[in-house]
Every structure is written in structure tokens, then in C-alpha cells.
């Protein structure tokens, strides 16, 4: 899956992989790749400015902490981030249900 297709969904994907846990940048990238079965083809460097933007928006907080013996900046959701994720999930379900109703139903029945 190419980066262009992901651009509009990157924020929601980042919020989703941080749901209920605190991760550093590369662990977030690994989680994105693992959850997508390796289908996400995103330049890894683009994730860091996106994380900063979400932090600036008050959806994430970050702190430097020691992970695996090294100091790393780790991120977690704020209450506003948790609410935003719930909204994104709900909107995504509605969107996929609507699109699936059209694309997933096979050919239209032919008229008699």
C-alpha cells in the first residue's frame, strides 16, 4: 500500500497503535507494519513529524524514557486522543460499511 493512499489515514493509524500503550517511534512503525501484515509502505521518517503534530494537537503526550537500555522518546494517548480514536473508528466503520455495500456486493442483477 503506497504512502499517498495512507496520507489521509495516518493520524488515525498512529492513534490506533498507541491505544492502551506507550511506544517509541520505531516501535510505532513496527506495530503499523505488523498490524497491516507488512502492507504499509510508508517512509519511516514521515512518522516522526506526524507524531509531533498529534502531540501539538493535544492528542498525544511524549516523554524521554529508557527503553531497552536506551533513552527514547515515547508517546501515549491523552484523553482527547482516546476520544479522537473512538470517533475515527466509528467514522471508519460507517465508511467501510457504505463502500462495502457497493463494492463488495458483486455485479448488479441484470434487468429482465
Amino acid at each position: 500500500m503506497k504512502a499517498d493512499a495512507l496520507r489521509g489515514h495516518l493520524d488515525a493509524l498512529l492513534l490506533a497503535v498507541l491505544d492502551g500503550r506507550q511506544l517509541h517511534g520505531y516501535a510505532i512503525i513496527e506495530a503499523l507494519q505488523a498490524r497491516s501484515g507488512g502492507a504499509l509502505d510508508l517512509p519511516t521518517g514521515t512518522v516522526y513529524p506526524a507524531l509531533r503534530r498529534l502531540e501539538r494537537g493535544g492528542l498525544l503526550v511524549s516523554e524521554w524514557s529508557t527503553v531497552g537500555g536506551r533513552k527514547r522518546r515515547t508517546y501515549r494517548l491523552t484523553p482527547a486522543g482516546t476520544r479522537a480514536l473512538a470517533t475515527e473508528r466509528s467514522a471508519w466503520r460507517e465508511f467501510t460499511a457504505a463502500i462495502d455495500g457497493i463494492l463488495g456486493g458483486g455485479p448488479w442483477p441484470t434487468q429482465a
Binding site: G25, Y26, T44, G45, Y48, R73
Partner: peptide, 16 residues
């Protein structure tokens, strides 16, 4: 701060 985080990410990826 930005550069330290980028370097960390690159080092992590290289280790993987």
C-alpha cells in the same frame, strides 16, 4: 530533539 529522535529511529531500524 527532532534529530535525536530521528537518529534513534534509524539506529532501531538498523538493529532490526
Amino acid at each position: 530533539d527532532l534529530l535525536a529522535e530521528a537518529r534513534d529511529g534509524l539506529d532501531d531500524a538498523a538493529e532490526a
